[in-house]
Amino acid sequence: MKITNRELMRTAGLAALHLSEEEMEGARSDLEKMLDLAEGMHSIDTKDCASFDIPPLPVSALREDVVQNGSGKAAALKNAPYANEDGFIVPKTIAME
C-alpha cells in the first residue's frame, strides 16, 4: 500500500509527532512495509468473527469507581518539568486581542 504525503503528515499530526523533510521518506517506507506485512491478514475470512480485545479473565476486571490513592499532588508534581505548588505550568494557549 502506498502512503501519500498528506496521509503521512496527518498521521504524524494525530500522533503529535514532528516529521522533518529528511525523516519523511524513512517514515513512509516503514509504514508501507508494515502495512504490506499486515496484508497477510486480509486473505483470512473474518466475517461474523467477534473481536478479541483482551484475553478472557475468569473474573470481572470492572470495579466500583472509588478513589483509593488519596492525595498524591505534591508527589505527582515533583516529576513535572515545570510546575508550581498548584499545578503543571503550560504555555499560554489563549492570546488576548
Binding site: 491478514m41 473474518t46 468473527c49 478479541f52
Partner: peptide, 8 residues
C-alpha cells in the same frame, strides 16, 4: 481486522 484475526 487484527482483533478478529486474534480471535481466530
Amino acid at each position: 481486522k487484527a482483533l478478529q484475526v486474534r480471535r481466530l
